[in-house]
């Protein structure tokens, strides 16, 4: 294992922030794995830390295939993680909206630029990412529809779903989008929760990455069989939205199979406890995403139901 400083952000008030990369093997730049780009992506950091520990053992046992190499970057935003802020605190900006970056630009653009310069050289790319809303997803592989996406290859992670999403305007400055345009087969993995460690989802995500690395001939290690993946798109997802605001009491959880008309949650008056709304699923399917914040506003997308 080689430990590299990919980029340093010198700080006046605090210690300098070093973005660390952990390299395994030599030769072709085969696969890069990136963890936290936001200060609250704890689960993403955790999965990367466990991946580094795993690959260290694989390398020790001669399991990195000759001529192949893997790079793992657990976090690019350590200063914000320590300070407990989701965005890059000094400028309140999201690094995952700064790609492909600019080495002459603001600090976040420099971070994105330095990272992208390293990452784009890799054949395959895996980003452990989070959703902008607090909540939990069924672990899945996701990619933007750029014309260069390869969902069939995404099935090699062995997760139940590979989600090809139509990008919105603001998505065009994300890592996944820019990574694909730069020629890397890029995938985003949603590893359950974000701000806290979810051991089961972390295990599942770690096993998926190991399966992919084995499948692509980059490492040779013990692995568990994956699931047959279904490729899904925006059209397969139905969003259940609250019509009222209040406290949210969930009845169902991510991954649950639900039948049309089944109760999913209650929106409760936060002062007198009366039920303002009962959320029901309009279709039979599986709960792909649930919002897990305590409050909902009017128009909150609380559940995503996969109807396929």
């Amino acid at each position: 294992m080689k430990k590299d400083v990919i980029f340093t952000v010198p700080s006046y008030f605090r210690d300098d922030m070093n973005i660390m990369g952990y390299r395994f093997g030599k030769g072709e730049k085969s696969c890069a794995v990136l963890g936290a780009l936001r200060g609250n992506e704890i689960q993403q950091l955790y999965v990367c830390a466990r991946l580094v520990a795993f690959l260290r053992e694989v390398e020790r046992d001669g399991g990195i295939m000759p001529g192949k190499s893997v790079l793992v970057v657990p976090t690019a935003i350590g200063l914000s993680m320590n300070a407990g802020t989701r965005l890059w605190a000094p400028e309140n900006t999201d690094i995952n909206r700064c790609f492909p970056g600019d080495m002459e630009g603001a600090t976040t653009e420099q971070i994105a630029g330095a990272l992208f310069d390293k990452l784009k050289a890799y054949k395959y790319g895996v980003q452990l990412t989070s959703f902008y809303q607090p909540g939990a997803f069924v672990p899945h592989v996701r990619m933007m529809e750029t014309g260069r996406q390869n969902p069939e290859l995404g099935c090699e992670f062995g997760l139940p779903y590979v989600y090809v999403r139509t990008p919105r305007i603001s998505d065009k400055t994300t890592l996944n989008y820019c990574w694909q345009l730069a020629g890397t087969q890029a995938y985003s993995l949603y590893a359950g929760k974000t701000q806290e460690i979810d051991e089961a989802a972390a295990d599942q995500t770690l096993r998926a990455i190991i399966r992919f690395l084995n499948g692509r001939g980059i490492i040779r290690s013990e692995q568990t069989p994956g699931q047959k993946s279904a490729v899904i798109t925006n059209e397969d997802i139905i969003t259940v939205t609250s019509k009222h605001a209040g406290l949210l009491r969930r009845v169902k959880h991510a991954g649950a199979h639900v039948r049309r008309g089944e109760q999913l949650a209650f929106v409760i008056n936060p002062l007198d406890g009366s039920v303002k709304e009962m959320l029901k699923t309009p279709v039979t399917g599986m709960l792909f995403f649930i919002q897990d914040g305590p409050f909902v506003t009017e128009h909150s997308p609380v559940f995503q139901v996969l109807s396929k």
Binding site: R86, L87, N92, R97, Y132, Q133, P134, S170, T239, T241, G293, F295, T297, E298, H299, S300, P301
Partner: peptide
């Protein structure tokens, strides 16, 4: 606070054109 101070903490000036069936901010 610059961002919209709901749980999503998004920059309102990066959410246009919005979506009538989307989140509170998008609508």
């Amino acid at each position: 606070q610059r961002m919209v101070p709901t749980s999503t903490m998004l920059d309102m000036n990066r959410v246009f054109p919005g979506n009538p069936d989307g989140t509170a901010l998008e609508s």
